[in-house]
Computed example of a mutant assay.
Amino acid sequence: MRVFIFTGCMALLLFACRSTKNIQKAIEKKDTVAVVIPVDTPTHEDTLKLIANVFNGYKPIEYKTFAAKIKVDYFNSKGKQPDFVANIRMRKDSIIWISISNDIGIEGFRVLINKDSIRVMDKLANTYQVKPLTSLQDIAQIPFSFTDLQELLVGNPVFFNRDSVVAYNRTEKGYTLLSSGDVFKNLLSFSNSYNFEKSKLDDKDVMRNRTADLSYFEYETKSGFVFSTYRELFLSQQNKMDIQLKFKDYRFNEELSFPFTVPKKFKRIQ
């Protein structure tokens, strides 16, 4: 059984799953995004200033703990798949705990992820599985890290390095910055108020042809954090998947527990 293919940023890692009975692979929908360079060629100093202005205005979420209840809808090549609810708890740089249940609250899976491993309890089949975190990287074929997973869930950009920005644009609607990293080209879009609105990933390896669109909507301010409560993830490689995440509740910096006791009757599988 495979668990989440938080596929590296879904390709940005993905929080792609199977359902409450399975958890599958994927990565997103491909469309072409052009980066428009202003007619008046900016100087290097102008470029650095614009990039600095964006990052001075944009405030990534800084937290110690994070908890959320998310309704997940997803579609694949066969159409709409059963939706489910994911309850997530995280301690930054330490642990990710996930409980997956159906819409009436029956828990199917419980997952515990740290920097080295991923543990999965299948409460429907009474089985228990332990895999190295690198197994998710092997499945997704993307070199994402534990930190990437946490950043994706909390709503911060992933696979982006401000030092590798190669193009930018300023429009009436906001700003775009294009970063070229080792694995992906990443086009980030920000609103005029510097809310992070979209990440468009394209694989630099044209033979893989992996792409991902991550879009962030319905921002609200709660406890001092500006947070996107609705997200759409379009993933594609050989297969395609459309994932919609609706945050029903979320909390920052509260005391959290991460219960994960495996019953004796559960059989450990490979």
Rank of each mutant, 00 (worst) to 15 (best):
residue 4 F to V: 15
residue 4 F to R: 06
residue 6 F to H: 10
residue 8 G to K: 10
residue 9 C to E: 09
residue 14 L to Q: 10
residue 15 F to P: 09
residue 15 F to W: 11
residue 18 R to I: 05
residue 19 S to V: 07
residue 20 T to I: 12
residue 21 K to M: 09
residue 26 A to S: 14
residue 27 I to P: 04
residue 28 E to W: 07
residue 30 K to E: 13
residue 33 V to T: 01
residue 35 V to I: 15
residue 36 V to E: 12
residue 37 I to P: 00
residue 38 P to G: 05
residue 44 H to T: 14
residue 44 H to D: 12
residue 46 D to P: 02
residue 48 L to Q: 14
residue 49 K to Y: 07
residue 49 K to E: 11
residue 52 A to N: 13
residue 55 F to V: 01
residue 56 N to V: 09
residue 57 G to E: 01
residue 58 Y to W: 14
residue 60 P to V: 03
residue 69 K to H: 05
residue 73 D to P: 08
residue 75 F to K: 15
residue 80 K to S: 09
residue 84 F to Y: 15
residue 84 F to G: 03
residue 86 A to G: 08
residue 87 N to K: 15
residue 91 R to P: 00
residue 91 R to V: 05
residue 92 K to Q: 11
residue 94 S to V: 11
residue 99 S to H: 00
residue 105 G to E: 03
residue 106 I to L: 13
residue 108 G to Y: 13
residue 108 G to F: 12
residue 109 F to N: 02
residue 111 V to F: 06
residue 111 V to K: 06
residue 116 D to P: 09
residue 116 D to M: 00
residue 116 D to C: 03
residue 117 S to T: 14
residue 120 V to Q: 05
residue 121 M to T: 01
residue 125 A to G: 05
residue 133 L to C: 11
residue 137 Q to T: 12
residue 139 I to Q: 04
residue 142 I to Y: 04
residue 143 P to K: 08
residue 146 F to P: 06
residue 152 L to D: 07
residue 153 L to R: 07
residue 153 L to F: 11
residue 153 L to E: 04
residue 156 N to C: 08
residue 160 F to M: 06
residue 165 V to M: 02
residue 169 N to A: 13
residue 170 R to C: 00
residue 171 T to G: 01
residue 175 Y to C: 05
residue 177 L to C: 01
residue 177 L to N: 11
residue 183 V to T: 14
residue 183 V to H: 01
residue 186 N to F: 00
residue 189 S to I: 02
residue 191 S to G: 11
residue 193 S to M: 00
residue 194 Y to M: 07
residue 201 L to E: 02
residue 202 D to M: 12
residue 202 D to S: 14
residue 205 D to V: 05
residue 205 D to L: 05
residue 206 V to W: 01
residue 208 R to F: 06
residue 208 R to V: 04
residue 209 N to K: 13
residue 211 T to K: 09
residue 213 D to L: 15
residue 214 L to I: 15
residue 215 S to G: 06
residue 215 S to W: 00
residue 217 F to I: 05
residue 219 Y to N: 05
residue 221 T to N: 12
residue 222 K to C: 03
residue 223 S to Y: 07
residue 223 S to V: 04
residue 223 S to F: 07
residue 224 G to Q: 07
residue 224 G to L: 11
residue 225 F to M: 10
residue 227 F to W: 03
residue 232 E to T: 13
residue 234 F to Y: 15
residue 235 L to V: 10
residue 237 Q to P: 00
residue 239 N to K: 13
residue 242 D to R: 11
residue 244 Q to Y: 15
residue 245 L to E: 14
residue 245 L to T: 04
residue 245 L to W: 00
residue 249 D to L: 09
residue 250 Y to G: 05
residue 250 Y to M: 08
residue 252 F to H: 00
residue 252 F to D: 05
residue 255 E to L: 08
residue 259 P to L: 06
residue 259 P to H: 08
residue 260 F to M: 09
residue 263 P to A: 09
residue 264 K to F: 14
residue 264 K to W: 00
residue 266 F to Q: 03
residue 266 F to L: 12
residue 268 R to I: 05
residue 269 I to R: 08
residue 269 I to E: 10
